[in-house]
């Protein structure tokens, strides 16, 4: 049953791997990472700088490219669905056909310069964590892109929505958190602020990276709940769990919509 998905993925990967945007995306990460090595030096510094790149670029590119990808795959989707292919299989193949190449590109674009600068092995764990987070972000924002593209047939509207959604998660939401922090500074805020952060996948990924790479800064806050939550394995597991929800909920919604929708 699922084999149809695998068959389709095989061809889609061939298609995507030849497309220009994958080559641009790969080149971008290679150039940035290598430039960081040239100017910054040590692998630790490069990873720290890459954190910002990952948090900024990946959600934006994933959601924009993803939305465009779904719209551009419309006719192809229709054609394959007129073959003996189930809608669920097609949906999985489409999603994998976006998420896999994006993830592989990011992973390779970051890891390759580490290899030729000779510091891959010494930074394997840290790099794995960074790339892992990058892939999770890619997956979440690809899932959101599917949601948007299945929400409206109008390509321009969809792309606009994608930009707004990115802006919301990347900038506006954190502004709201800061407003809440200032407005209610007389109240105990640790729990509400932690919960608010959980509701934004980009904040979650950012915090997961901070826990690993900048605990020294994060631990500067004395709040007990905060300390307990962010300093423990339990906290990290919670974050991982919520991130998984951020992948599965948009995907589940998207899949349901995809199965019942008219083409």
């Amino acid at each position: 049953m699922k084999t149809n998905t695998l068959k389709l993925i095989k061809y889609q990967l061939r298609d995507v791997m030849r497309s220009r945007w994958v080559i641009f995306y790969l080149a971008f990460f290679i150039l940035v990472t290598d430039a960081l090595f040239r100017f910054g030096g040590s692998g630790d510094r490069v990873i720290l700088s890459l954190m910002n790149v990952v948090l900024l670029v990946i959600p934006l590119v994933s959601i924009m490219l993803g939305t465009m990808y779904v719209y551009n795959s419309r006719e192809y989707t229709e054609l394959m669905l007129s073959q003996p292919v189930k809608r669920g299989e097609m949906f999985s193949a489409l999603f994998a056909g976006l998420m896999l190449p994006l993830s592989v590109t990011v992973a390779a674009g970051i890891a390759l310069p580490f290899i030729w600068n000779g510091v891959l092995i010494s930074h394997l764990a840290a790099l794995g964590y960074l790339i892992g987070t990058a892939i999770i972000l890619t997956t979440i924002f690809s899932a959101l892109a599917f949601m948007i593209a299945l929400l409206t047939e109008d390509k321009i509207k969809g792309l606009g929505l994608a930009v707004v959604m990115w802006l919301f998660f990347a900038v506006i939401y954190d502004g709201l958190i800061l407003v809440v922090i200032y407005m209610f500074s007389d109240y105990p805020l640790q729990q509400p602020v932690l919960v608010m952060s959980m509701l934004n996948p980009l904040d979650l990924a950012r915090i997961a990276l901070l826990i690993e790479f900048e605990a020294s800064t994060l631990m500067g806050f004395t709040g007990a709940l905060f300390q307990r939550f962010l300093g423990s394995t339990g906290g990290l597991l919670t974050i991982a769990g919520v991130l998984m929800l951020w992948i599965s909920l948009p995907l589940a919604w998207g899949a349901r919509r995809f199965v019942s929708k008219d083409f």
Binding site: M51, N52, L55, L56, A170, V171, I172, D174, G175, I177, L178, I181, Y182, S185, L189, Q190, V193, L194, S197, D203, R206, I207, L209, L210, E214, T217, L218, G220, F221, T222, G223, F226
Partner: peptide, 17 residues
């Protein structure tokens, strides 16, 4: 900002900041 409201440390490395 962090000095006044230490919990805003959670926004470290946010684009908004």
């Amino acid at each position: 900002i962090v000095e006044r409201n230490p919990i805003s440390l959670i926004l470290h490395r946010s684009l908004f900041i």
